[in-house]
Amino acid sequence: MKYKDYYAILGLDRGAALADVKSAYRKLAHKYHPDVSKDPEGEARFKEVSEAYQTLKDPEKRAAYDQLGSHQAGQDFRPPPDWGAHFGNGGAGAPSFDDIDLADLFAGLSGGRQHGGRARADRPMAGRDYDVTAEIGLEDAYHGTQVDLHLGVPDYDHQGRIHHVERTFKARIPKGATSGQRLRLRGQGGKGRNGGPDDDLYLNIVLRPHALFRVDGHDLYLDLPLAPWEAALGATIEIPTLGGPVQLKVPPGTGAGKKMRLSKRGLPIPQGGEGDLYAVVHLAMPADVTKPEQALYKQLAEASTFDPRAHFSQEARHAG
């Protein structure tokens, strides 16, 4: 069994008062709680902090923990020989501690309460629901996909001791999944205790940002750069879509900022139909303009009467 230094995790001395334990936990929980924090390390950090707190806030568990002695964090160790007899595992002989996590050991202590603190150990109890986030690419959302989810779920051995087992789920994600959409896998979360119902696994879909397309609901947005002459003269342009390239006819005189709708080329909607794809025009200028090109621009400037800032002088007159 690997040793974890619960005091160090909470930033406390071994003699810290209960009030200090609480206050240290709350400070860290505010910082790392995954429902509140944007810290990518938040979830893992919160798990550690919460595990330390669950043990140190309970005088009996804290005493049991202190009896384990002080070791280096991560160091392999075994509890003293009579440890189990003092702390609730009496009569179980010398249990093997090799494959037990420290947290599970304390969760199994007599009088130990489950997370949430309500359930009695002998009552049929639902397992704990799991939330898993699956990040999928836009192409996968368009075609539908299958994802492998790995998670540690609790299981109970014949002595009623809790173990964490890694399970892999293959979940089929139907086409048209969008960010924030939720799936539920019935009975695939934590295993119920004492005959309680197995719980559900909740899958939260998040779309990975795409290099070309931006997503708003089931609509997609694509920046469409046009050369000045394409915008002026019109052009037929090949546009990438998730279903393959299509030809888009750009009318002459298309200005920057114009949104061109490609109907039903967005993400499929699970209830039926498809979102739209919007190509948003912007004018791209070549970084280097060659001499002959400059001459053509000059010719154009001389021939044209176009004033792109006519409204400036109008507005100025109104203001005056």
Partner: peptide, 13 residues
């Protein structure tokens, strides 16, 4: 422990 490899057809909520 053997890893479970389950094929699931998730229910859309």
């Amino acid at each position: 422990e053997p890893h479970d490899a389950l094929w699931q057809d998730p229910q859309w909520n």
